[in-house]
Amino acid sequence: MSQADEILNVLSLRASFPTYQGKVKAVNNINFSINKGEIVALVGESGSGKSVTALSIMGLNAPTIKYEKNSLISYKGQDLLTMKKKKLKKIRGNEISMIFQDPLSSLNPLQPIGRQIAEPIQLHQGKSFFSAKERVVQLLRMVGIPAPEKRLQDYPHQLSGGMRQRVMIAMALACNPTLLIADEPTTALDVTIQAQILNVLRELQKDTGISILLITHDLGVVAEMADRVLVMYSGEIVEEGDVFTIFKSPRHPYTQGLLNSVPKLKGAGEDRLKAIPGVVPNPLNLPEGCNFYSRCSYSSEKCSAAAPPITDSAQNQRFACWHPLEKKVNQFV
């Protein structure tokens, strides 16, 4: 990938929350980039720091958050972390927008959805509600809401969960952003609705060429949607690669563990479901060495002594492990 295609670059991002119990280290030195037109999945168990990462890009973390000095989130060459509020405001909802896990609580219950979708258009393009209406109807049609003209006056509670998430997507896409961050957009929805929403996202990506950072804990979603995968564990990215490589030949034992815990249709007999034993380390008190040490069946003394660095990013797969799994070549599972 050439530099020019890169729209977002996260460099040595470290974020923590001071609390009465101590410093909660939510994100510990992560690096990744997102290219134009790419769907990047950020996967990991709950509590691994996915949302904090996403909200750091939006600048919407709780105000108590502390970013370590060298942290950098570069968007078109400008650092979002140190950007002035006035400037950041022009990017939010206009060039970078976000959708959330629970569409019901994420929509204002007292405002008709038409108003809510029109709001970013009014704000960033200086249009009146009346002149934004046409675009709102177009957006609702794009996300697959039937008879959109009749829906403008509806309130969120009058729509189904799937429809609400479509409304959220329409709202996020209102100003044709370059990057959409979707934080577990289907987690709160029924399985059949999940598939529909993912479809909408995929189609929209194809049509608009938008980049998507898709946060999920569901590898099924990753397989269906992503071009590239970032595997996050305890605030670190432990493995990264294109989706085929990661699914075919994971190198980090944690990635392997995640894959093993996904039900497969084929070969379900031999490969029984295996959950990863143990729990995520407490972000208040992270271990000295590898964060995965206590749960890993490959661990050695070396792992408890020092955290493994992540390998060179020039390759199409990188990982942070002292004892990586063997690379499988051209092998069909």
Binding site: L60, I91, R92, G93, F100, S106, L107, N108, L123
Partner: peptide, 17 residues
């Protein structure tokens, strides 16, 4: 502190808005 306020910020609104 509610979610839809976070949504409002994510659209680019400032505190007073």
């Amino acid at each position: 502190e509610s979610d839809y306020i976070r949504t409002a910020y994510s659209k680019g609104l400032l505190l007073w808005q």
